[in-house]
Amino acid sequence: MKNIILASQSPRRRELLTQIGLEFEVHPADGEEIITSTDPVEVVKSLSTQKAAAVKEELEPQLPENWLVIGADTIVVYDGKILGKPKDEADAIRMLRMLQGQTHSVYTGVTLLEEGKQTTFAEETKVSMYPMTEEEIAWYVSTKEPMDKAGAYGIQGLCARFVEKIQGDYNNVVGLPVGRIYQKLKKEESF
Rank of each mutant, 00 (worst) to 15 (best):
T38C: 13
A122C: 10
R14M: 10
V178P: 00
L99K: 00
A92K: 02
R94G: 02
K126D: 01
N172F: 08
A138L: 01
A7D: 11
L113H: 07
T125H: 03
F121Q: 03
K87H: 08
K186T: 13
G168R: 01
V173Q: 11
V174M: 09
G84I: 06
E57F: 11
K51I: 07
H104L: 14
V77A: 13
P61Q: 11
D88P: 09
A90D: 13
A54H: 04
S46V: 05
D30A: 15
S46D: 13
A52K: 06
P177N: 09
Y170K: 10
E115P: 10
S37C: 04
G71Q: 06
V44T: 09
L16K: 06
E58H: 15
D73I: 06
A160F: 04
T133I: 05
V163M: 09
Y130Q: 12
I4M: 09
G31V: 14
S128E: 12
G157N: 02
V41Y: 10
E58D: 14
R180C: 09
Q100Y: 02
A92S: 06
T74D: 06
A138C: 01
E188L: 05
P11H: 06
R13E: 06
G168K: 02
P11F: 10
E89D: 12
F121A: 05
I137H: 01
K187H: 13
E15R: 07
K186P: 03
P11G: 04
L96H: 00
K186S: 12
T103G: 07
S142P: 00
T38Q: 14
G84M: 03
Q50S: 01
Y140C: 00
D79A: 13
P61I: 10
E25T: 15
K2L: 07
K45S: 11
M147S: 11
A52F: 03
V141W: 01
R12N: 08
T103D: 05
Q156T: 08
D169M: 06
A53H: 07
Q100W: 10
R94T: 03
T103M: 13
T133V: 03
S48K: 09
N3H: 15
D91L: 02
P86L: 05
M1A: 05
G151N: 08
A138Y: 00
K165N: 15
Q167E: 13
G175P: 04
E23Q: 15
K45R: 13
T119Q: 09
R94W: 07
S37D: 13
K149V: 00
Q167I: 12
T38F: 14
T125C: 04
L22T: 13
W67Q: 12
D169W: 04
E136Q: 02
L96A: 00
M98H: 07
G116H: 12
G116P: 05
G84D: 09
A92D: 07
D39H: 11
T108V: 11
G175E: 05
R14L: 05
A29M: 10
Q9F: 03
K51H: 06
I75V: 15
G168Q: 01
G84V: 08
E65S: 15
